[in-house]
């Protein structure tokens, strides 16, 4: 646990909309702690001369031209919808 003191499984589960039991929380606290310990090995590497990046390969500007292409017909777009009506996906009422 020492490698990841700020890991709050309960909070992360809530963000991920996961309903965990107390036993599961304990299990994941340990398991995720190990994962973070493993990643924490990076802290021992001197990266002061390395430019931060989110990618391993130095590839930039992968663009497409602004050309519209054919879209799904609505019946295909809606084919996986658990509920649909009037060509709309229908979900439990959400009001923020």
């Amino acid at each position: 646990m020492s490698a990841a003191p700020d890991l709050d499984v309960r909070y992360i589960a809530q963000l991920a909309r996961l309903d965990l039991s107390e036993a599961e929380i304990a299990t994941f606290q340990t398991q995720l702690g190990h994962v973070l310990e493993h990643v924490a090995a990076l802290r021992r590497v001197d990266v002061s001369a390395v430019e931060p990046t989110a990618h391993a390969s130095a590839v930039f500007n992968v663009f497409r031209d602004d050309e519209p292409r054919a879209s799904f017909p609505p019946e295909v777009a809606l084919s996986n919808a658990p509920r649909k009506a009037n060509e709309l996906f229908v979900v439990t009422k959400v009001v923020e």
Binding site: R64, E67, P68, S71, F72, P74, E87
Partner: peptide
């Protein structure tokens, strides 16, 4: 991030991929 047309007022769910 995709080639679907941007069009105001199109019929619902006709510009998706």
């Amino acid at each position: 991030f995709c080639g679907c047309a941007v069009e105001y007022g199109a019929a619902p769910n006709t510009r998706t991929c």
